[in-house]
């Protein structure tokens, strides 16, 4: 498939607020992203605006505070998606199309049951939660992540294994938790199944606690993928690290105009689609 034919649905509702920079990230790579309001997929818009999820090659759920995150982060957006689009979403994931959720998008993917997605496409109820940070407040800070994935996740294909990257975090609810009686088991299962994609580290790659891990996430996990490897959710923002000049350290390191750490996530997805279809 040609790059410019790759259609990416950047999905939004009220309170989604990272759609423009996420759109820009795909646009810079020559793909064809489109910012789509959920109502355009659910038939609740004027005729000329109506869209079909299955016409897209990738679904992108950007960061923000969808619907204010007033119930639980991502819960309202997820409920609205699932109530209208459950079947389409299932087919979309089943056919191997990439789905990426960043920050609020990760919260939405967990709330829909697409993540962790252990041996199932979508669980009927959420099997994990992104809870309030241990600091009990919103944290905006550079975070360092190690690429833990051995190859299952399609979004890290271009990222060397164990490479440490900087994607900034900005959230109040990023603490990944599983049911406490099974937490250990689930984490080791995720590790065994190569579904852990990123863990928080310090700036030289050692696993580390607060403030390096801004939220107290279980086992320092920052991002996970499903069993198929085509759905990725992560709290930190790769789109805010697309160019080096967005890094907090570029005036020390130089090379401001080069691609930043975040580029690999978007480019990996595009290359995957180019090859697969």
């Amino acid at each position: 498939m040609k790059r410019e034919e790759i259609r990416i649905c950047v999905l939004r509702i009220e309170g989604t607020n990272c759609e423009q920079e996420t759109f820009d990230s795909f646009n810079r790579l020559g793909a064809s992203p489109e910012i789509v309001h959920l109502k355009q997929l659910t038939g609740k818009s004027s005729e000329n605006r109506k869209r079909d999820l299955l016409d897209y090659q990738m679904l992108m759920i950007p960061g923000g505070f969808s619907s204010g995150d007033y119930v639980r982060a991502g819960a309202i957006f997820a409920a609205r998606i699932k109530s209208a689009l459950e079947d389409q979403l299932r087919s979309f994931v089943e056919r191997g199309s990439p789905v990426l959720g960043i920050c609020n998008g990760f919260q939405v993917l967990v709330e829909t049951g697409l993540l962790p997605g252990i041996d199932e496409i979508m669980s009927p109820v959420p099997r994990a939660v992104l809870g309030t940070n241990d600091s009990n407040r919103f944290e905006c800070r550079p975070t360092y992540l190690v690429n833990e994935n051995e190859g299952r996740c399609l979004f890290t294909a271009l990222l060397p294994k164990k490479k440490v990257v900087m994607f900034p975090s900005a959230h109040a609810e990023g603490k990944l938790m599983f049911p406490s009686d099974e937490e250990e088991k689930i984490v080791s299962l995720l590790d065994d199944e190569d579904m852990v994609v990123f863990r928080y580290t310090d700036s030289i790659g050692n696993y580390a606690d607060y403030p390096w891990c801004p939220n107290g996430s279980v086992d320092g996990i920052a991002g996970i993928c499903n069993s198929i490897g085509n759905v990725l959710g992560l709290m930190p923002h790769p789109e805010r690290a697309f160019f080096n000049f967005l890094s907090p350290e570029w005036t020390r390191r130089g090379g401001p105009n080069e691609f930043g750490d975040g580029w690999a996530i978007f480019e990996s997805a595009i290359q995957y689609i180019e090859k697969k279809w």
Binding site: N17, C18, Q20, E21, D24, G63, R137, F138, E139, C140, R141, P168, A170, H237, E239, R240, F242, F245, L246, P248, T251
Partner: peptide, 15 residues
């Protein structure tokens, strides 16, 4: 400063 999102919109070059 850490409580404010100073990076949303992905254009904050000098923070």
């Amino acid at each position: 400063i850490r409580q404010y999102d100073h990076e949303v919109r992905g254009g904050t070059v000098i923070k």
